[in-house]
Design a protein around this nucleic acid. Sequence first.
DNA 1: TTTATATACGGAGGCTTGCTCCGTTTATCA
DNA 2: TGATAAACGGAGCAAGCCTCCGTATATAAA
Lengths: 194, 194
Amino acid sequence: MSDKSKPTTGRKVRVDAERNRLRLLETAKGVFADKGSAASLEEIARDAGVGIGTLYRHFPTRDALIEAVYRNETEQLMAAATRLAKERPPVEALRAWLLVFVDYMAIKHGMSEALSSLVCGPSDLYASSGAKITEAVSMLVKNATANSDIRLSIEPLDLLRALAGVATIAAGPSGSDAAKRLVDILLAGISTRT
Amino acid sequence: MSDKSKPTTGRKVRVDAERNRLRLLETAKGVFADKGSAASLEEIARDAGVGIGTLYRHFPTRDALIEAVYRNETEQLMAAATRLAKERPPVEALRAWLLVFVDYMAIKHGMSEALSSLVCGPSDLYASSGAKITEAVSMLVKNATANSDIRLSIEPLDLLRALAGVATIAAGPSGSDAAKRLVDILLAGISTRT
DNA sequence: TTTATATACGGAGGCTTGCTCCGTTTATCA
DNA sequence: TGATAAACGGAGCAAGCCTCCGTATATAAA
């Protein structure tokens, strides 16, 4: 993270460019949360007070913008995974993290949609963020299996996909509750304890 | 099903109208499967060899078309539920039906997306089809709980939502396998047997 | 068979949105 | 204080959604 984004030139990054980039990210976060990731990019540019051309220069595709917006969120999920792994016994850490995941999806309405694509990734677009989340959940799962708390007969990511599915489809508070109950069912389903 | 759609008049339904209706349904099924339910309606009309106006007369909204396309599918799901409930013990019937559900979602790529909306229904659009599927899964679940095979701590529909989520997000054969493993985990999670 | 007419057809056209291109403006550096 | 590389931003084209209405035709009556 020490590069100035343009190592090929001596010029510093212009402050207006960086400012607009941040304004766009902030605005996009709000708009995506409100209207889902299919929201109008023109609206985002307008709300951010920049031209549509500026938006497209910073983020050449819709997906590039989405990825940038949610990179921050995925990093928080990663951090939570690391912290929980240290603080709690394996299976509890896993449960707690899954609940954190559900909360993230619930709070940011539109985010669940984005996270779905992200968790999936037949496209390479979300590859880096997706890889991080995979890493997080895999670590938690590995700890729990090593401890013989659970037997895993499914890809760790598929657990997230199921949660993402419920949260995506049934948005709102009731969907969140459903997702939380689903966490218990899933954990019971893969538990070695009777 | 004995009405001629226009009981207010003596005229028969014109054969060209019915033919175009069927062509549109058939074409839409293919295009939705290929490109998801956001596919261009103009393309569907073009492929079906009719004008865009004709498409809109038969199906005033995109959702009307989607609903019509998948009504047939949901009826098959209903039929399968009824049949399985008669032929097998409760919990097996439930498992078998969930697997049928997964297969449906896997085979028709684009359908999973439509079914997601359908299974959800904050909109009334898919109300009738959604209600049928709810009915089907509820019956199977009720049988199994009455038999004390499972304890249900979650809405039956949420089971489908989880499956839909996995199938939607991870399309293709691997997604299908994942969804099938998920069925086992879910059933283990709500089973009363240790 | 011929005629009358209800009904369906289909595309032009108005509108919105996605995305590109390029002339104008401005922050940086010498 | 220029020179200039870089960013800005909106005009403009393409594509899609949906409506409207003149034209074509299947059906029913004579």
